[in-house]
Amino acid sequence: MNMPHRDLDVRPILKEGGEPFSVIMDAVAELKPGQSLRLFATFKPIPLFQVLGSRGFTPSAREIGNGDWEVIFTPSDIATSRELSAPSTIASASADAWPPPSIQMDNRDLDPPEPLVRTLEGVEQLAPGETLVALLPREPLFLFDELKARGLAWRGTMETDGSYRIEIRAVEQEPSP
């Protein structure tokens, strides 16, 4: 654990009334193996403990004055295997860096199965290696089978409001016909 923390200060986002969740998850996704995340927030981010806990991170939080908090999320050795089996965070792909999403979509307010249809329509527009991020009303259980059948890599996280954020990456090469 001699690797430096990755620092992320979400206090400006929070003070502007924003939602830093995706920024935090992006930062987590970009962590090097074994690297921990030092997060600064304006409150003790309890919901994150659960989310990152299921990804194998142990939080250690302390108040640093003015109601602000510093939390260090340290990965445990079994982080990778936990990540695959944890219910709130599931992925078909390892956590190596993916390019920033080429397409972002919010499919939360659509009738089922429209969220699936829209997401897959977006996926079909991706060039090889590109990624798409979609917000879905809930964990898209019927989508995973389709993604598997189409050989797509994905990773997803349950958001704190019960919705689901999925990141899907088109395969590098065109599949052989």
């Binding site: 089922p112 199965p113 329509e121 089978d145």
Partner: peptide
């Protein structure tokens, strides 16, 4: 109808236009 839709159009979801449920 929902399961029928999924069974029938699941494989082409996003690739071709499909009817709504």
């Amino acid at each position: 109808p929902f399961l029928t839709w999924l069974e029938c159009y699941g494989p082409v979801m996003g690739r071709r236009p499909t009817p709504r449920v």
